[in-house]
Design a protein around this nucleic acid. Sequence first.
RNA 1: GCCGAGAUAGUCUAGCGGUAGGGCGCAAGCCUGGAAAGCUUGUGGGGCGUCCGCCCCUCGGGAGUUCGAAUCUCCCUCUCGGCGCCA
Length: 428
Amino acid sequence: MLDIKLIRENPDEIIRRLQTRGADFSVILEIVKWDEERRLLLTEVEAKKNFRNESSKRIGLLKREGKDTTDIMKEVGEANDQISQLDAKVAEIEEKILNVMNVLPNVPRETIKVGTSDTDNKEVRRWGEVRMFDFEPKPHWDIGTGLDILDFERGAKITGARFTVYKGAGARLERAIINFMLDLHTTKHGYMETLPPFMVNAQSMYGTGQLPKFEEDLFKVTPFDYYLVPTAEVPVTNMHANEILALDQMPVYYTAYTPCFRAEAGAAGRDTRGIIRQHQFNKVELVKFTTPETSYEELEKLTNNAEEVLKQLKLPYRVVELCTGDMGFSSAMTYDIEVWLPAFATYREISSCSNFEDFQARRANIRFRREQKGKPEYVHTLNGSGLAVGRTVAAILENYQNADGTVTVPEVLRPYMGGLEIIAINKK
RNA sequence: GCCGAGAUAGUCUAGCGGUAGGGCGCAAGCCUGGAAAGCUUGUGGGGCGUCCGCCCCUCGGGAGUUCGAAUCUCCCUCUCGGCGCCA
């Protein structure tokens, strides 16, 4: 949610910056008109309410004295009719404003490169040596089925397309990665581990910006008003909804493992093979609540924390800064971390780290106080994947594959795999 | 799922048809050599305004009754206790 005061004061500036996302936002000018109309009506109806309050007090006094109140009650009755009409008009305008405000994306930070798609993204840095194979590297789905650690057919049988069964060392590898990431972030990077609900209510989805605009991307748990989480960002950010944080407890760092559920509406035909794009996948998420003046510094640190996972796994990656046209709805600035996948011969997104500034905080009403008596201000919220677990498995299978079809286990994961060094075909 | 009790400002609590009172916390002022204590004032959201102020809203959410609702009626949500079911 954008600040209506900013829109009121500088509509042209807001329009200009929003339009770098590649859509038309002249509706902002409508909002400004409605907002002015709303305030005029408010002044009018509040004067009438003042009359009603004063009159009601007098009626009380007059009745106590046993005097006649017929005339004044008639006046209040008329005022009441006008009040209910004006109130209805105000509510109508407010709804109109809110309906538009709810689907307005965040304003990109001033420094973000203007562009229309991922081809305009700016590469910030690269890390690691891309491995040269002396054999033809196989895609992770061939490696996974060859070792019988990924079972796509049974996943489809049990549930449907884009669901996969992990078996034996594959299941253990997934679990090992989760534990490794959580341990790294909690012991080295200062995050508090949380294990939130995997379903949230509509209010929480609104708070982080998934609703009302992106309902078709979510799994709804009928007949409840609950949704399966598409990312731990939703439950963890909403942990502090409607709260006022104390300055001395900030910045707040949380990490959380959750499965993520995405309908992937509109993704038909893309990444249909393998585990790159699933309806259900695991992710370890990093979430921060910061003051406005430190949020961009915290974004750098958060991104570095996610990169550290890839460094320790010795997986080559690059970091790109998303252009205005490629950024998510709620974000003001986003870094994507892309891991090298040999079979695709390209870098693929494995983490997305964003600063939402006060966009989510305003929707979810998350504030902090600088001083005991000070006015509450909105916090800045940030999050990033640290990392997507399924895609990490895919990256390990492809980058660590051997000519005989086996896969070497990255050193840092071996303690989590009972010392296993090589994943060979499942014996049972 | 059933029965009961609750939800009041940062926090605790009173009020149960006349427009939110008190305690604590916090802040400012007075007092003081300085503090504590004490006393006074303030404490959420919004609107209007020549910055002095004025007004509206807010008692879990919504609808209704009334000149007037924290208070009465109905619906819903959540919390706590008991019973039932259950990994």
